[in-house]
């Protein structure tokens, strides 16, 4: 449910920054509010992805592949969320 405001915030920001230069964008990504919201967005989206796609797999896959699919889905979701968060933190603290 937290995904509704977070994703709307992200879409609005994306529109606002559609003409921004690299420098402006980085400056925005470095503000503490952006960092916190972006990390929350990444966690919420990939949690939602992992649970949602898991239900889809359970619906359609009936072979012994089901378990392997679900596990790899969760690992991939975790890896993607981690990669996103690391990028955000890298921009915030170095960049």
């Amino acid at each position: 449910m937290a995904l509704i405001p977070l994703s709307l915030w992200f879409v609005a920001s994306l529109i606002a920054h559609s003409r921004s230069s690299y420098g402006e964008l980085i400056a925005w990504l470095k503000t503490p509010a952006t960092v916190i919201l972006m990390v929350l967005l990444l966690i919420a989206s990939f949690h939602h992805t992992a649970t949602g796609v898991r239900v889809i797999i359970e619906d359609y896959v009936h072979s012994s592949w089901r378990f392997a699919f679900v596990v790899s889905l969760q690992l991939v979701s975790l890896a993607l969320a981690a990669a996103g968060i690391l990028s955000v933190l890298k921009i915030a603290f170095t960049g």
Partner: peptide, 29 residues
């Protein structure tokens, strides 16, 4: 269901975008 899967791919795009921004201006451009 389909749009959910597409949105998930969009989230992958978001990670790619953040990673590009983090690795410097050439990648981001």
């Amino acid at each position: 269901r389909i749009t959910g899967v597409i949105s998930s791919l969009g989230a992958v795009g978001l990670v790619a975008w953040l990673a590009a921004a983090a690795s410097g201006e050439p990648a981001w451009s």
